[in-house]
Simulated assay, not measured.
Amino acid sequence: MTEVLKQLVELLQLEPLNELSFRGNSENLGFRHVFGGQVLGQALMAGCKTVEEKDAHSMHGYFLRPGDHSLPIDYEVQVVRDGATFSTRRVIARQSGTEIFAMMASFQSPEEGFDHQFDMPDAQGPEGIYSELETRRKFKEFIPEKVREQYTVDRPIEIRPIDPINYLAPETREPYKQNWFRAIADLPDDPVIHQCILAYASDFGLLGTSMLPHGVSFMGKGMQVASLDHSIWFHRDFRVDDWLLYDMDSPSASRGRGLNRGNIYNQDGILVASVCQEALIRQRK
């Protein structure tokens, strides 16, 4: 495992304070506030640490306040229900005693049942596509100096966008986007690690899908953007150190909010997870 990926795994592991309370550190990715994917991954990990012999199948979270990446985050897990098949947990994230995120997560014992899925859409494979990091480094002189270092350092998740977007000079296009992504090295076989890293990675690029028809990006002058809520459904087993296709669309934007959806497939065309998020996409005059 590379050092940068090891750091991500350690970031998601959390320090136990008691049986139902945990503390996580924060990282600075160059955004104004804590990266939402970090909070998603850590909150899911906190819930997983209180459940035995069941896997997470869904999580639904609300970002209540922006987080400060210079401060740790405390996660309180509340046991809502433990049944024979399903368990439910409520997770509250706080900084300096103030709630910044709230999540409900559901866990299920292994079970067989009906099985169907949408077919994987046509997409160019990941081979031969420049990664997002390679492109940033190639054109780093155009990145604002105050975030240039954070945007061009090694990252634990490699993202290869199909038909990439120039965030500094976005063009108007249909609200559809596809990225391949994976962890940059092999990970342990623990499925909890893979679910938490997928939750972390699911927040990369999703928000911007709703801005595509309007020719703006999060780096545009006067743009105020933030994730408002985020939901994930885990359908089937997967490994996040194998290539996964993130097929995204945005069916609607209105009243300063954009709705973004994504289906995540492995290279065999198996639908492993689905994501939905509403985001603030406000353009200040």
Rank of each mutant, 00 (worst) to 15 (best):
L64V: 15
K6P: 00
P156W: 05
G256N: 04
E111S: 13
Q124V: 09
V272K: 03
E53R: 15
D268N: 10
R160E: 02
A46G: 07
E19M: 11
R89E: 05
G30P: 02
A273L: 02
P213V: 08
A183L: 07
I184K: 10
M45Q: 15
D55A: 15
F107H: 04
E111W: 03
D189S: 14
I159K: 02
E99F: 09
V4I: 14
V80G: 00
P191R: 02
R65V: 02
D154L: 12
I92A: 07
E15Q: 15
F118Y: 09
P161Q: 09
E27Y: 03
V91M: 07
F107R: 07
Y130G: 12
Q78P: 01
L64A: 05
G37P: 02
F139Y: 11
A43P: 01
R94M: 10
G269S: 07
L212M: 12
C196T: 12
Q42E: 03
N18G: 14
Q108V: 03
Q224V: 11
I73T: 10
R23C: 05
G258I: 02
D68N: 12
Q277D: 02
A105T: 11
K146G: 06
H235Y: 08
Q13W: 13
P188C: 03
D242P: 06
D55M: 15
Q7M: 15
E141L: 04
R89F: 05
R23F: 00
T172H: 12
Y130L: 05
Q195I: 02
Q78T: 10
L133P: 05
G41H: 01
K138M: 13
V9A: 14
K140L: 06
T152A: 13
I165S: 01
Q124A: 15
S131F: 05
M120P: 01
S131P: 05
P16M: 01
F35K: 00
Y200D: 01
I281V: 14
T85K: 11
V216G: 01
I270P: 00
D247C: 13
S252T: 12
G24C: 07
T2Y: 09
T98V: 14
K285P: 15
H57R: 10
T152W: 06
I73Q: 01
F238K: 04
N266I: 06
G36N: 04
S26A: 09
D249C: 10
D119E: 13
Q38L: 08
F234S: 02
I232S: 06
G97D: 09
V9N: 00
G256P: 06
R90F: 06
Y167P: 09
I100N: 00
L228T: 05
Q178F: 03
P191M: 03
W233R: 11
M223E: 08
K177T: 00
V4T: 13
F238C: 07
L259V: 10
V240F: 05
M120H: 01
F234Q: 02
M59A: 02
Q224A: 14
F234A: 05
L5R: 00
I270H: 08
S131V: 04
